[in-house]
């Protein structure tokens, strides 16, 4: 068992949308998803990508506007008499006013609409920047700066959801002592295939923050039950997972089979909760569960005062 270190992670930025995390250096044409505020190459401040896109859109509008102004000016220049000049001027002003009004009313739609293709255009740059970050992480790993490595990869993980990243995360995470007060992730590191390290991590996490166990984890547990059981203390883990599932009614509904299977390995306090629940709400569909619960209660906790009253 490797030596684990106690760490305190940097706080991660919470954003509504992933693109909000993307920052750009206008000068170097690079992107940055970490916490630095200024570009390491040129020292200029990073701009949110949205702002960049908005600038592009703004300029585009300006260009369009200027084009119209040019046409109007040419019209005036080609005018051959005073009335013609006046008409050209008047109409021109009218057109420009219309333009301005249109812009005011519908400009925002254009901004958003421009943002999408902008991202498509910039995807290579973004990808390149992410790769650059990964290289940094590699360096960190080499230098055994696991905390930094994890913090960085956590940021990247917002953008790329591949198993590779997840597994990297897990590997870094497994270097740390997990505590209740840490901001831990579970769902976002659940890989698509069975991974030993993940299971190991799960074991640790479940101890400190069982509330992290969600549907994906439960599904994973269900899918790879056999592999987990092969592990040392696999049943215990399954029991803990089942115990974590007890937190929410829908979970109990959905994962009855799991609960029933590993009812004997559910920790006491969790089991107590289950017993109380089952006793209180004998819904339809919970018969098996009630039976299993009763069985264990009768077997193990017949003389437990906490369990009195559950029959």
């Amino acid at each position: 068992m490797r030596k684990k270190i106690g760490v305190l992670f940097r706080k991660t930025q919470k954003t509504a949308y992933t693109f909000e995390r993307l920052k750009a250096c206008k000068h170097c044409h690079t992107y940055h998803v970490l916490w630095d505020t200024h570009c390491e190459e040129c020292g200029r401040e990073y701009q949110p990508i949205r702002k960049l896109s908005a600038s592009v859109t703004r300029r585009y509008v300006q260009t369009r506007f200027l084009l119209m102004v040019l046409f109007v000016c040419l019209a005036i220049l080609c005018a051959k008499s005073l009335p013609q000049i006046l008409i050209a001027g008047g109409v021109g002003i009218l057109l420009l006013a219309l333009f301005y009004w249109m812009q005011k009313k519908y400009g925002s739609y254009e901004r958003d609409a421009q943002f999408l293709p902008f991202l498509s255009q910039e995807q290579d740059a973004i990808k390149k920047s992410l790769v650059h970050h990964l290289e940094e992480i590699g360096a960190d790993v080499k230098a055994e700066r696991y905390k930094e490595a994890y913090e960085k990869i956590r940021e990247i993980g917002h953008f790329i959801h591949s198993d590779t990243i997840k597994i990297r995360k897990i590997m870094f995470l497994n270097h740390f002592i997990l505590r209740k007060d840490m901001e831990l992730e579970l769902e976002t590191v659940t890989p698509s295939t069975y991974d030993k390290d993940f299971v190991e991590y799960l074991r640790e996490v479940i101890k400190v923050q069982p509330s992290l166990v969600k549907k994906s984890v439960l599904d994973y547990a269900r899918r790879y039950k056999a592999y987990i059981l092969l592990q040392e203390n696999g049943e215990q883990l399954m029991g803990q997972i089942a115990g974590a599932a007890l937190r929410m009614r829908p979970y109990i509904d959905q994962y009855q089979d799991l609960i029933i299977e590993f009812i004997d390995f559910i920790p006491r306090d969790r089991f107590l909760r289950l017993a109380k629940l089952v006793h209180t709400h004998r819904h339809e569909g919970w018969e098996l569960l009630y039976a299993a619960t009763k069985r264990r209660v009768d077997a193990q906790f017949a003389f437990d005062p906490d369990f009195a009253g559950i029959s």
Binding site: V72, A75, C78, G92
Partner: peptide, 13 residues
């Protein structure tokens, strides 16, 4: 020509 140019501007708009 002037009017043509104005028309072109209008079309743009």
């Amino acid at each position: 020509v002037s009017y043509f140019l104005l028309a072109a501007a209008f079309v743009l708009l």
